[in-house]
């Protein structure tokens, strides 16, 4: 072994030895002076994060002209996709909720509105019907609860389409004196979602 390598080895050994003693003393000192109060990290398991989110769902508006343009009976029927409920991020975590409907009819005829919740196979999971008197009828409000003591939450989890059927139960000639004559359906959902 060349002399300089031997000398270098000795130097490194000396340094490491002194460093070892130095760090041992420091570690010992910190161990002696440091304390920690009792901690319970299992408390994390008790954490419950259940935010409540709400949003509008569907808005339907029709003028009286549209209703008068067709013979009495159904004047509008439409299926459309609605994937907000069936998204895994929602359907896997939703705990309960309520859908609120508000209907206002200022037309001169009594109307029926039906909302049907459909799954991927177009099977009707649930339906909600509203019979609305001719104007003046005020505002019809209905809260439909899902989960807990309400309807099955599976309805919400499996809904991927909504069917809207609007029926004129009156004539197709009269005109409301209220301007503008409209039928309006408003709706919103408020759901608890388990995040943790």
């Amino acid at each position: 072994m060349p002399f300089y390598a031997f000398f270098l080895s000795l130097t490194i050994c000396a340094i490491m030895k002194k460093l070892g003693i130095f760090l041992s003393l420091i570690t010992l000192l910190l161990c002696v002076v440091s304390c920690i109060e009792d901690q319970d990290f299992d408390q994390y398991k008790d954490l419950s994060v259940v935010p409540v989110f709400e949003s509008s769902i569907l808005y339907l508006e029709s003028t009286e002209d549209v209703i008068n343009n067709v013979p009495p009976g159904p004047f509008y029927s439409q299926d459309f996709s609605f994937n907000a409920f069936s998204e895994a991020v929602f359907s896997d975590r939703v705990l309960d909720g309520v859908i609120t409907y508000e209907i206002e009819n200022t037309t001169s005829k009594p109307l029926s509105l039906t909302l049907e919740f459909l799954n991927d196979a177009d099977e009707v999971l649930d339906s909600e019907s509203f019979d609305i008197d001719a104007s003046p009828s005020g505002t019809l409000q209905r809260d439909v609860v899902y989960g807990n003591t309400g309807k099955s939450l599976d309805i919400i989890k499996n809904t991927s389409k909504i069917r809207v059927v609007a029926v004129n139960n009156g004539d197709n000639t009269s005109t409301s004196t209220i301007s503008p004559p409209l039928v309006v359906l408003k709706s919103s959902g408020k759901f608890s979602v388990r995040v943790k």
């Binding site: 949003s55 508006e61 439409q78 996709s81």
Partner: peptide, 22 residues
Amino acid sequence: TVEGVEIILPDAINDPNADFWQ
């Protein structure tokens, strides 16, 4: 700003294949 799916008649009747959600 989002206020949910909006179906306005008669516009929606004139476009029966509309995918309101998408």
